[in-house]
Write a protein that binds this DNA or RNA. Sequence first.
DNA 1: CCATGAACAGACTGTTCATTC
DNA 2: GAATGAACAGTCTGTTCATGG
Lengths: 125, 125
Amino acid sequence: MAERRQRESTGFLIKQRAFLKLYIITNIENGRWYGLQLLDELKKEFKPFGFEPQHSEIYRALHELEDDEQILTKMKVKQDGAKRKEIVVYKIKDSEKAKAYKKLVKADLERCEQLLRKAIRDNFP
Amino acid sequence: MAERRQRESTGFLIKQRAFLKLYIITNIENGRWYGLQLLDELKKEFKPFGFEPQHSEIYRALHELEDDEQILTKMKVKQDGAKRKEIVVYKIKDSEKAKAYKKLVKADLERCEQLLRKAIRDNFP
DNA sequence: CCATGAACAGACTGTTCATTC
DNA sequence: GAATGAACAGTCTGTTCATGG
């Protein structure tokens, strides 16, 4: 089971999903995080670049990193303080797979960067 | 009439359509071109970057540059030689609008490039 | 086969709704 | 309101089909 999408159709630019997954892994490598917390952080990061990710994309990315890529595991924990709300906290489950995934995305990011630079060169001499 | 799409939803990366439109304008600024000819040229250009545009995207881009952006006009011409096949050749109709469009896309390309560079910086120290 | 175009279908993502604290 | 999740809807794009030389 668990065979899912495989990208590389005609290969234009990287998809938002993969881009967010990369950031999520890196953040979780440095500590525990849960969904809305990641959303706030990433919104803050990308706001200056006119990009504002949505909460559903973050959750989809987290679910795929757990179910498809098998890179993360989740834990439900009671929030600190008086509140008895459960939140879903993620941590790295397989750091080798995490490393491999990041390597893949890095290559794609560099490819995309070159494509954009080429477009600027070719069209604005 | 003729009110159509306006991008900037949450603003991740530039869309393939806009990217191709830019190249199409630049190519047509330097002479007459028709659809499949542009397709061949652009496939050749982007092949080394793992990107291979499809013919329907080229046609959609051309149609929008004519109908929506009002930057191009088309002419049907008989192909040279013995063949009596008509092909659809485009030329610039409004070079001011072309210039303005390219300026817009340039800004977006630069924004995207910065976003990618940031991702490389942030995740691969 | 070349050339243009439209129709159809699927993938990706944004908006909304549902549920629980 | 915070948090998670799923359902729904729309857009973008790839594949296929249709037409004509």
